[in-house]
Amino acid sequence: MTDPLRDPRFFADPYPTYAALRDSSPVRRVATGSSGQYSYLVTGYAEARQAFADPRLSKDTARFFAGRPSRRDLHPAVARNMLATDPPQHGRLRSLVTKAFTTGAVARLRPYIAALVDELLDAWPEHGTVDLVKSLAVPLPVTVICEMLGVPEADRARVRTWSGELFAAGEPERIDAASHAIGGYMTELVAAKRESPGESLLDDLIAVRDDQDRLTEHELVSIAALLLVAGHETTTNFIGNAALALLQHPDSWARLRKEPELLPTALDELLRFDSPVGIATFRYSTEELPLGGTVIPAGVPVLIAPGAANRDPARFPAPNRLDLDRTATGHLAFGHGIHRCLGAPLARAEAELALGALLSRHPDARLAVPAESLTWRHTRLMRGLVSLPLRV
């Protein structure tokens, strides 16, 4: 059995593979790796939505891997973070950071985000070629989350590099090294902020740890590392994927130029069409689990694929067509259930403001290279472009 998720063609365009797997069975066993390992892959919409909310699927990686031999060397702050916990620990940790990402909190950030978008686009040439990923999709969310956490400007380029390395599919040594770089950096930043406090989200978390004793030191560093990475990776892919989708659908591009008020609702269709998360983070079955006509045995990894579920024709007719009139609410790009993406309101605001400014300031932008020559990130977790050259 070969791993269908490691084929180079999968990274360039995963949707034919997803469709073939889903047509065979919406839940099926697949090879993962080259040493006889396997997982159960969930590609159907109804099955994915059920799986996201099923308490029989655990995210407690520490419990799953306890006692198992491993060649991996992930930093503890990356290996055991809030995403890798179950209730009640998950709810306790999530409640400490939720208020920073509510719709109201994000609304207060919108003027800052809009000004940052303008600043980034001001640096674009009036005529010529520009890489949207490098000059907008990456620096915008990186700068916002780093500002929120109080990461010094001089360190942000390194943070982005380490974060990208974390998703190097099939290269465990690079991933492990990046995890130690991020974990070590956040440990040092926490120490520096204790010496010289500020008013960032990280300062608030340190106060929760030191003054209120509601976090362990490991939990503090792991939340900081998670927010640093998760706070921009998904949004970078969201902006790049959405821009490419619109550029490849000139009618949709032109419509949003003329009717910019449609953009907030169009975001759902753009998220559905090319989800920035292809396959969600690790889960495993704690007991036998019937799902989609398949019985998943206890104690095996389960991969839920929002990228596949969002193109399930049983839920979204003509799923391979971008349709701005479609009611795409209910898509699973941000997950579902208690682990639904905490930063979804922030990601939506950043994408809305970035795409809106792109459409208004560069209405005649077009791809500078054939779409087939674009390079996609080599990771099955994230779905995102390495670069997106535009002619403006």
Rank of each mutant, 00 (worst) to 15 (best):
C341D: 11
R348C: 14
A347W: 11
I338E: 05
A354T: 04
L374R: 14
N320G: 14
F316Q: 09
L324K: 02
E352H: 09
E372D: 14
A328L: 07
P319Y: 00
H362F: 15
P370V: 02
P317C: 02
G343F: 00
A333H: 07
H336V: 02
P319H: 14
D323T: 04
A365F: 10
R340D: 06
R326N: 10
R377Y: 05
A368D: 09
A344D: 12
I338A: 13
L353Y: 12
E350A: 03
R326F: 01
T379Q: 09
S360K: 13
V369I: 12
R326C: 11
L346Y: 00
H362K: 04
A333L: 09
L359T: 09
W376V: 12
R377A: 13
L324G: 10
L355Y: 05
R326S: 11
L322K: 06
R321P: 00
S360G: 07
L353S: 05
R321S: 04
S373Y: 00
G356Y: 03
L358A: 00
D325R: 06
T327F: 11
A371F: 01
T329L: 04
P317E: 07
R380N: 15
T329N: 08
T327H: 15
L322Q: 09
D364T: 13
I338V: 12
P317W: 06
P317M: 00
F316S: 09
N320C: 05
H339N: 09
L367K: 05
A318N: 15
R321L: 14
A318M: 14
H331F: 06
L353G: 00
R361W: 02
P319K: 07
H339D: 03
E372N: 10
D364M: 00
I338T: 11
S360P: 02
G335F: 01
A357Q: 10
A318S: 15
A354K: 01
T329M: 02
T327M: 08
H336L: 13
P370A: 02
L353D: 00
A351D: 12
L346C: 04
H339G: 09
S373P: 04
P317N: 02
T375F: 02
L374W: 01
R366F: 11
P319S: 07
A333P: 07
R366K: 10
L374D: 01
V369W: 01
E372T: 12
A357M: 14
P345D: 07
T329E: 14
L324A: 06
T327C: 09
A368Y: 12
T379P: 07
L322N: 03
F316N: 06
H331R: 06
S360L: 03
E352T: 07
P319M: 11
A333E: 08
L374G: 15
H336C: 08
P319D: 08
R366L: 03
L353K: 07
C341L: 11
A347I: 09
A357D: 03
A365L: 14
I338P: 11
H339R: 08
L353M: 14
A368K: 13
R366W: 07
T375C: 10
A368H: 09
L359Y: 06
G330C: 10
